[in-house]
Amino acid sequence: MPRLARPLTLLAAAFLVALPTLAASAAGKSANLTLVAYSTPKASYDQIIPAFEATPEGSGVTFGTSYGASGTQAAAVIAGLKADVVNLSLQPDMTNLVNAGIVSGSWSSKRQSRYHGMVTNSIVVFVVRSGNPKKIRGWNDLLKPGVDVITPNPFTSGGARWNVMAAYGAWRKAGLTHKQAVANLTKLFRHVSVQDTSARNALQTFLSGKGDVLLSYENEAYAAKKLGQPIEYHSPARTILIENPVAVTKTTANPVQAAAFVSYLFTPAAQKLFANNGYRPVVKSVFKQYTSVFPTRNLTIFNITDRLLGGWKKAQPQFFDPKTGIMAKIEAQVGGVTG
């Protein structure tokens, strides 16, 4: 019996060694902010947070961070995941937080922010293998026989919903009727071989060698390219402007510091850091410095609030209601997951 006691003692010892450290990390709570964000901006925040901590407003503030699929993160916050600042992929996920009473309904009002609470922009691009062997340039190229498309699942991933709205909007802009555009969308999803839970997982899948084209955020493509991956990316002639919302929660214990951090995100310094990681800055003066990186010429970049799309308020239920949405029906036809 003493011999069995030994591993138990070891475990107990490990516990005793580890406990004080854990307690210590929990004790620094006084000025600790938790940032809950969608899957892709981690690299940006890894630079922005230390920069903020170096400012007078940020001195003494420490951060906890959590990154994951936008919808999943919003659900976690609703379930009780402590969050002081939330940065999600798209407005409907933020609306869910508003409905749950976690974020103020006025988060996007002019008084809160000149930028309607949108901290970064991006566009939907096509990521292809180096040299673009399948010559994929426009939306219709995705429907060609033998083209294997990767996009995440729109019921968990915000990026996926941007992809859907980009495709639909582009076809409408090209003159197709609603019915024709939805038919094309159905066709498109027949070409989708893998639907990951988040934009980042979809990128991992594509980089592991699966698929001919990945529909993704421009910033994701930019980051992957910067890491030296054998890919290139192109914007289709018509694409959507992605806007990523940020907000301070009503439940925060540190509203002053949280608001200071969100304000800092809109400063030129922070916006430059976003830009360096592939995001289109929302601050015009900063954006102008990056026009060579973020092409706009010859592109029709439309907005979710475009007349043909009707804003998220209309598009979210129309396309992404888990039971009645257009995408729910398409997923049912192609055998995807809607839960």
């Binding site: 475990l11 107990a12 516990f15 580890a18 990390s25």
Partner: peptide, 15 residues
Amino acid sequence: HAFQLTLVIAAIAVP
């Protein structure tokens, strides 16, 4: 921290 946390969880859940 991740390793410590893993050990703490095991140190409680296993006994």
